[in-house]
Design a protein around this nucleic acid. Structure first.
Lengths: 249, 249
DNA sequence: GGGGATTTGTCCGTATGTATC
DNA sequence: CGATACATACGGACAAATCCC
């Protein structure tokens, strides 16, 4: 396949002298990255070089780069250069956070939808890892839960440890997208919670116990039990969130 | 809570005369939408008005708007105005498509990860809807499958009908995020397949039969059967995709 | 259908801040 | 420290698209 044709069917020649439409320059820069096989972290041409090679002004190049930056497809370092980005799920987090916050009257519904997706995902995922988890991985989860319990006894919340647990749970899948998606949903939930001024977990000991329950089921290779424990965990999250919502109202 | 402080802790006064960093203007425009309770489709201030109210040049405003446009948070209509966008999952589709295409050597892995997430989601979702689907909804699914079978007998592929089926399957959940997420993954998969030049479904009759199997299980309220049928469906998709990949190699 | 007003799209030139060497 | 390369920002100008009268 000839370069320059995967993202856009229109060839370069047809654009000579004609004004580009929509996000044309954006797509051309993406195509440039693909054609040159640039990896995340690799340097892009400078703005001046892009101006010349694309035949557009600096402003147009910058607007396209800013759009690609918002998608985490490129990373711009002030005074240094532009580089290929990680194409992370940051735009998903930004979009979902904004959409949830925009539902000022009832964001409970939007948050509930995100929570339901997380629950469906984790319930299905834990079934898949329950049979393949090694003893070493179980021990790693054990260590994380011990830290949870310590924090819980001290009456402190542990959002980061919670996140770490769910991430460590699914490493054995070898699926890079899964932890990124879960982290994205987790971030949206906690960012919204932060903006809304919700208080920390009021009963960290209970939360730690729910995680312990999941690990116990996994050690026993009891898939059904693990799924139920995960579902209970989400019931707890829902209860906390909805209680806070009512409290604010 | 006072306006202008939910997305950014720094107050306006601290910015007077000081240069903004990173996506500051972007966040200020988002905050403006939130503060004014602007709904999707509502008109934003013009670029000139934003220049004045934010105290920055037109170029800076435009770069911020272009970034928000990439996130589908605003929609820009040439010669008309700027409007609040739908905050759809378009950026997720763009990002995942780019990331998959960037893995030139083996995109099988990246595509497989997306497929696995879709499978986990749909397997868990079908369990939830299996008990609540009404007869009317089952009849609607029936009608969709009939169209599939007609296309299949004619030897034609039916990607759009396939998508329609999976969307109709989960409307009873009342979760708006679910069909959007599934559609996003579906779009990434088929856009990559299109760029890679993969041929259409070689055996549409078989694909139609797998969908029929899902509906049969749902009519019988047989949750386990429905889950198995859905899993089989995905085995079929994987087989097709991997076969194509090997064929290209 | 025509014309004027409004708004976004593109471009140029210049000055400034920033990071690397 | 200076020199260089680069991104950031500003102001002005004109073109293109859309809407309204």
């Amino acid at each position: 396949m000839s370069p320059g044709s995967t993202l856009c069917a229109m060839s370069e020649e047809h654009l000579v002298g004609r004004r580009r439409v929509g996000g044309q320059i954006r797509r051309e820069i993406m195509q440039l990255i693909l054609d040159r096989r640039l990896r995340p972290g690799a340097a892009l041409p400078t703005e001046s070089e892009l101006m010349e090679s694309l035949g557009v002004s600096r402003n147009s190049v910058r607007e396209a780069l800013k759009a690609l930056q918002a998608l985490d497809i490129v990373e711009i370092r002030h005074g240094y250069g532009t580089y290929v980005g990680q194409a992370s799920l940051t735009p998903l987090v930004d979009g979902l956070t904004f959409r949830t916050l925009a539902q000022v009257d009832d964001d409970t519904h939007a948050l509930g939808e995100i929570l339901q997706v997380r629950e469906v995902l984790e319930e299905g995922l834990i079934r898949r890892v329950a049979e393949t988890l090694t003893d070493a991985e179980l021990d790693r989860l054990e260590a994380i839960i011990v830290r949870m319990e310590e924090k819980g006894r001290a009456g402190q919340a542990f959002p980061e440890i919670d996140r770490e647990f769910h991430e460590a749970l699914y490493v054995s899948l070898g699926n890079e997208l899964v932890p990124q998606l879960l982290a994205a949903f987790w971030n949206v939930f906690h960012r919204v919670a932060g903006v809304r001024g919700w208080t920390r977990d009021p009963a960290p000991v209970v939360t730690a116990r729910r995680h312990r329950e999941i690990l116990t089921a996994l050690r026993a290779r009891d898939v059904a039990h693990a799924q139920r424990a995960m579902a209970d965990h989400f019931r707890g999250i829902e209860a906390r969130a909805w209680q806070e919502t009512l409290g604010v109202k």
